[in-house]
Simulated assay, not measured.
Amino acid sequence: MVDPAFVLTMARYNAWQNENLMAAAAGLTDEARRLDRGAFFKSIHGTFNHILWADEVWLSRLLGTEKPTVGGRGSAAYIEGWDPFCARRRQRDRAILDWAQGVQPDWLRGTLIWYSGAAGREMGRPRAFVIAHLFNHQTHHRGQIHAMLTAAGAKPDDTDLFLVDEAR
């Protein structure tokens, strides 16, 4: 069940795993991070960018923050440089953590209405469902990054959710 404790745990997990994978990726060359490895968003860098882009889209819908100026098709090239990407990722993780600390049960029971560029229409879903999607989307694509990093010879740390409290 999606409740405030779940939201906070997943926000903490998100930040922890982004740091984990960025640290592993930092040991690669820029060329290795950008190499087309056959993933949906092609490269490690492209997949990292897509996750950040999607997080910013959802934050704009949930919090009214500025949404990305590029669409989903451009998400893999969202932030060009590695250092600017890492700085922006950390900022967004902090924003997600700050937001998660204030989520209330009544808010989660409400409905979010938004225009979906992917579906080409207005959508509405329970906020709890949207939050589950936000964190599931991150985890799905981080799994792809983990596989690409491992194939590239990098060694990310553990990713198990039950370890999040011990790592933070």
Rank of each mutant, 00 (worst) to 15 (best):
I79K: 03
H133R: 05
A152R: 04
D83S: 13
T69V: 10
H140F: 13
R37W: 02
S43P: 02
S75A: 15
G38T: 02
G124F: 01
E80R: 13
G153F: 01
Q101L: 13
R92I: 14
G102A: 06
M123Y: 01
G46W: 06
S116M: 07
A100W: 06
Y78V: 10
V57I: 14
T111L: 10
K67D: 11
R127L: 15
L52E: 09
A152T: 01
R34N: 10
D93N: 13
L149V: 01
F48M: 12
I145W: 10
R89K: 14
D93I: 11
R94K: 15
A147Q: 10
W58E: 05
P68S: 04
I44H: 06
G81K: 09
R73W: 02
L62Y: 04
A23D: 13
R88F: 03
W107Q: 12
L97V: 12
L149C: 07
V103A: 10
H140Q: 12
A26G: 11
A151V: 07
Y115Q: 10
P68E: 12
A100N: 11
P105V: 02
I145P: 02
W99A: 09
I44W: 11
E56P: 02
G81W: 02
I96L: 14
F85E: 02
A23K: 14
C86P: 00
G46E: 11
A76V: 00
T139N: 07
W114Y: 15
A147Y: 00
F85C: 06
F48K: 03
L63G: 01
A54H: 06
W58C: 02
G117N: 14
K155R: 15
F129G: 09
L35D: 03
T139R: 09
Q138P: 00
I131L: 15
M148W: 07
A76F: 03
D93M: 10
L134C: 07
F129Q: 14
W58S: 07
T47E: 08
A118P: 00
H133E: 09
H45R: 08
L59Y: 05
K67G: 14
D55Q: 15
D55L: 03
S116K: 09
T69M: 05
L134N: 04
C86H: 01
A76H: 11
T139V: 13
I96G: 05
S43W: 00
R90S: 13
K155C: 09
Q138G: 13
R125V: 09
